Amino acid sequence: MRVYLPCTLPALARVATVKELGPAPLTGYAVTPALTEWYASGDTEELEYVALTEAARASLRMLAADRADGVEVAARRVVIAAEVPDDDVGMGTDLRERARVRLARAVPMEKIAAVHVDDQAAAEDVESALAALPAADGGDDDARFTVDGAEAHELLWYATQEIPDLVG
């Protein structure tokens, strides 16, 4: 099953060093039965894009958490796409997050298919989204619009061989 796992550049550097994403359990996003039922008119590519977008939103929250902990992290969302055995994937029951899954095991480097990362041109909008996140969570519609503005930027696709260049 293709699973999209939210990440950050420092976490991706750890993946490059230890050759796996972990420890488990890991939260990811995938084309689940609940997502397929909810988005009945979508084809596989559209459904995978929804899962990727959900993972990018989670990456934004990881960036905010890192910064709250004093970690210096670039304002770039990161999503790791991995092919994992179906048996390692647990489906959630939260109807608000239909694509959310849990992985029972760490993901070895050889299961990583690609990495999706914001272009540096997105940094200003990602910074604005990070600043607006608390107000957006509090229900402020203008802040929500700012957070959604980060999603106007498509994540770029990188092969696993390019990870050292991304984190170097």
Rank of each mutant, 00 (worst) to 15 (best):
P85H: 02
L155T: 05
A152E: 10
V107C: 00
E151C: 07
A122Q: 02
I112C: 10
A55D: 04
A159R: 14
A106F: 04
D140S: 10
D125R: 11
E127M: 06
H153G: 08
E124G: 01
D140M: 07
V117E: 09
Y39N: 07
M109V: 08
S128P: 03
L155H: 08
G42M: 14
T44R: 11
A122I: 11
G149C: 10
E48R: 14
G149P: 10
E37W: 06
E83K: 13
H153Y: 15
A40M: 03
G149E: 09
E45S: 15
V107L: 03
V84I: 09
R77K: 13
G138E: 13
I163H: 11
V79S: 14
T53Y: 08
T36L: 03
Q120V: 14
A104G: 06
D118C: 14
D88M: 01
E54L: 06
V115R: 09
L52W: 11
A104I: 03
A64V: 00
L130T: 00
T53A: 15
A152F: 05
R76K: 15
R76W: 05
E97Q: 04
D140P: 07
R98M: 04
L130E: 05
V71S: 04
T44V: 08
S41C: 06
V147K: 12
A114G: 06
V79L: 07
L130I: 04
A143T: 03
A34C: 00
A51L: 03
M62F: 06
A81K: 08
A99M: 02
V79H: 12
Y39P: 03
Y49H: 15
E37V: 13
A106M: 00
V78F: 11
E151A: 15
A150K: 10
G42R: 13
A143H: 11
D119H: 15
H153C: 06
V107Q: 01
M62K: 12
A64M: 01
L103C: 05
G90W: 00
D140A: 11
D125M: 10
E48C: 04
A143D: 09
V50R: 09
A131N: 10
L63E: 00
A56V: 12
T146G: 06
A58E: 09
M62H: 11
E151I: 03
Y39Q: 12
E46M: 15
R100S: 01
R98H: 02
D142Y: 13
R57H: 13
D94N: 13
L155G: 03
G70V: 06
D87N: 01
A55E: 07
V78T: 10
A106P: 01
D165P: 00
A135G: 02
V126C: 13
T53Q: 13
Y39D: 11
V73I: 04
A132T: 05
R96N: 02
T160S: 08
V101L: 00
R98N: 00
D69R: 14
A136R: 09
V117A: 12
D119E: 15
F145W: 10
A159F: 05
S41H: 10
R67N: 01
G139H: 04
A122G: 06
E162H: 14
G42P: 03
S41Q: 06
P134C: 05
D119M: 08
G139L: 08
A65K: 11
P108R: 01
W38Y: 05
E110I: 09
D86A: 14
V147Q: 14
G90V: 07
L103D: 01
F145K: 14
L95G: 00
P108C: 02
Q161S: 15
L63G: 01
Q161Y: 06
V73W: 10
S41M: 11
M62Y: 08
D140Q: 12
E151H: 14
